[in-house]
């Protein structure tokens, strides 16, 4: 187990380095240099700025500096568009908003998927199963921005029709957090529901459930003490990638609902070609996702006793 953990951790670190390197060189392939968007820049200012951002040095030195700054000092530099703001500050200010949204969405997606998938499997080939499978494939196939804009439109029209004043953007109230979180989690929930359903179906037809029935356990006892746990295991393995999907999905949701999260900020930075912010956010998100997947894997190792010896 210990060896396995160390191996996974080592692999994770290499992956983060790989992500950072890929990010760095991708950003340096950009045609022109980051300062070319500046209007009316004198050669002197330009020189000064270049020195300030370190882009006058050779590429590999820049790369070394970037690695050192990022991983030893944890310093992601200053924003290009907003010279006085550190990228670290931007992340510190906006990531918690995204994290809250993401956590809500993940909670909504997994709990919903487990319940929904279980119902679909239990009523296999009956009406609840058919309707939920239709809904699942619909939720998987309709882009989240459609749901998000649709929900917003609905709220606006509802407000107009009833004279209510439901919030449809921002993060001021509980409603304005729950709706984006649900929409953000919808696709993931549908996907997980599918996995839960087929995994529960597999468990239901397995030999050990037959043994449990032969022991005289009631369907309820079988479900809670045998089926549920085994069926949820495959769902848990997907939670790592699901978090990644939800994190990137939040770019759109935050933009549409004007939630001041890191996702919205990232999209803005991309649109403004704010390279340090793009680079910093990518490295941050990348590392975050790698660590999340790692954490989920470790947790999974504790939940499924078989893992500990296998690896």
């Amino acid at each position: 187990m210990k060896k396995y953990l160390l191996k996974r951790l080592w692999h994770g670190i290499i992956t983060i380095l790989f992500i950072s390197t890929a990010t760095f060189f991708a950003m340096h392939m950009v045609p022109g240099d980051p300062l070319s968007s500046e209007k009316a820049i004198t050669p002197e200012t330009r020189k000064a700025l270049e020195a300030e951002y370190g882009i006058d040095k050779p590429l590999f030195i820049q790369y070394g500096i970037f690695l050192k700054k990022t991983f030893i000092h944890g310093d992601l530099g200053f924003s290009y568009t907003n010279r006085n703001t550190k990228v670290n500050e931007i992340i510190a200010n906006h990531f918690p908003v995204s994290a809250k949204l993401g956590l809500l969405a993940i909670f909504f997606a997994t709990s919903g998927a487990i319940m929904w998938g279980a119902i679909a499997a239990k009523y296999r080939n009956k009406l609840p199963d058919y309707t939920s499978m239709v809904l699942v494939i619909l939720f998987i196939s309709v882009p989240s921005f459609v749901f998000a804009s649709g929900a917003q439109l609905l709220i606006v029209k509802l407000n107009a029709a009833t004279g209510w004043n439901l919030p449809y953007r921002g993060t001021d109230s509980f409603v304005s957090q729950i709706v984006p979180a649900m929409i953000l989690g919808l696709g993931t929930m549908a996907f997980l529901t599918r996995i839960m359903r087929s995994s529960l179906l597999e468990v239901i037809h397995s030999d050990y459930i037959r043994t449990a029935r032969a022991k005289g356990l009631s369907p309820k006892q079988i479900f809670f003490s045998h089926e549920l746990r085994n069926a949820v295991l495959p769902v848990i393995t997907i939670i790592g990638p699901a978090i990644a999907a939800i994190t990137t999905g939040s770019f759109v949701i935050e933009t549409i609902f004007t939630i001041p999260g890191l996702g919205k900020f990232f999209v803005q930075a991309v649109q403004q070609n704010d390279y340090t912010v793009i680079m910093g956010t990518t490295v941050f998100y990348g590392s975050f996702l790698v660590l999340t997947v790692l954490a989920v894997d470790i947790v999974y190792g504790f939940i499924d006793p078989r893992i500990q010896v296998e690896k």
């Binding site: 992500i19 890929a22 392939m29 998100y285």
Partner: peptide, 18 residues
Amino acid sequence: IALPFLLFMILFKVAAGN
């Protein structure tokens, strides 16, 4: 595979000139 997919799609897009 470990690269965050959409993030890098965006990154490549930026790298190639938006």
